[in-house]
Amino acid sequence: MEDTTYGINFLVAIEFLALLPMMAIASDADPEQDFCVADPNNPTIVNGLVCKNPALVKASDFIFHGLATPGNTNDPLGSSVTPAAAAQFPGINTLGISMARLDFAKGGLVPPHTHPRATEIIFVVEGSLFVGFVSTNGTLFATTLQKGDVFVFPRGLLHFELNVCDGTATAIAALNSQNPGTQIQAVALFNSGISEVVLEKAFGLGEKAVQKIEYAVEAANKKP
């Protein structure tokens, strides 16, 4: 009975989590029709994704099964993010919402990153996560989340998630954009081709120190 109750509560929580961004002010443009299922085969470039012919839309366009399977955490960071944005889930195109599944090995980390187009809210399904974000005045807001807890990362602010339990951890995220965008700060700074002179001056480091960080960042974010 207890397992059944937990299963029901879990489903209700996920449904609520998915609806939250729709109750907020959307960061994406408001839709002008009931739906606009994305057509990934259309080469036309627009601000978003081109709509599929409504006459060809089916119920299956509004279903996404990708979050049911745990992601591969066999990498240096010990984490995996499985997105359900418009590119993966055509049915949410123009609806101003997306989701993601976060899987963590023991000690796994989703490194400091930003979503320039979305606020993110996460629900801890299993395990314990140490999470936090940094405001524009440099204040850190961090705490440890337990199973069943919910936490929000304001739009565009630097944030992270670290597994601090003895086993694996899982979380579900909802974001109020069909294409939130993700910029990992270490990669953007030290693995994007920015001049080493710029990095040396910005961080007060010598040439060798910058190069060492560049190699370390590349190795840490290299997928198997």
Rank of each mutant, 00 (worst) to 15 (best):
N74K: 13
D75W: 02
D75N: 15
D75P: 00
D75E: 10
P76G: 08
P76L: 05
G78V: 05
S79A: 12
V81Y: 00
V81R: 08
T82C: 06
P83F: 00
A85R: 13
A86S: 15
A86R: 14
A86G: 03
A87E: 10
A87K: 10
A87L: 08
A87S: 10
Q88S: 09
P90H: 06
I92G: 05
I92V: 15
G96S: 11
S98L: 09
M99E: 09
M99A: 15
A100C: 03
R101P: 03
D103C: 04
F104Y: 14
F104L: 00
A105W: 02
A105H: 03
K106T: 12
K106M: 08
K106F: 00
K106Q: 14
G107H: 08
G107T: 06
G108A: 02
G108P: 04
G108E: 01
L109S: 02
V110I: 12
A118Q: 07
A118S: 13
A118E: 04
A118D: 02
I121N: 08
I122V: 15
F123G: 01
V124W: 02
V124Q: 01
E126G: 00
G127N: 03
L129I: 09
F130M: 07
V131W: 07
V131R: 09
G132V: 08
F133N: 07
S135I: 06
T136W: 03
T136Y: 05
G138Y: 11
G138N: 12
L140A: 12
T143K: 15
T143M: 15
T144W: 05
L145C: 11
L145H: 13
L145K: 12
K147R: 15
K147S: 06
G148W: 13
G148Y: 13
G148P: 11
G148N: 09
D149S: 15
V150R: 14
F151Q: 12
F151T: 11
V152D: 00
V152N: 13
P154L: 11
P154Q: 07
R155K: 15
R155C: 06
G156N: 09
G156D: 04
G156Y: 04
G156P: 05
G156A: 10
G156T: 05
L157A: 03
E161H: 14
E161Y: 08
N163P: 07
N163K: 05
N163I: 05
V164N: 05
V164M: 08
V164G: 08
V164I: 15
C165I: 01
D166H: 08
G167I: 03
T168Y: 02
A169H: 05
T170S: 07
T170L: 06
T170K: 11
A171P: 00
A171Q: 00
I172M: 13
A174W: 13
L175V: 05
L175C: 09
N176T: 07
N176S: 08
N176P: 10
N176R: 11
N176G: 07
S177D: 04
Q178D: 14
Q178W: 07
P180I: 04
G181K: 04
T182H: 01
T182M: 06
T182Q: 08
T182L: 07
Q183V: 14
I184S: 08
I184K: 01
I184G: 02
I184N: 10
I184M: 09
A186S: 15
V187G: 02
A188Q: 13
A188E: 05
L189F: 11
L189P: 02
F190I: 14
N191E: 06
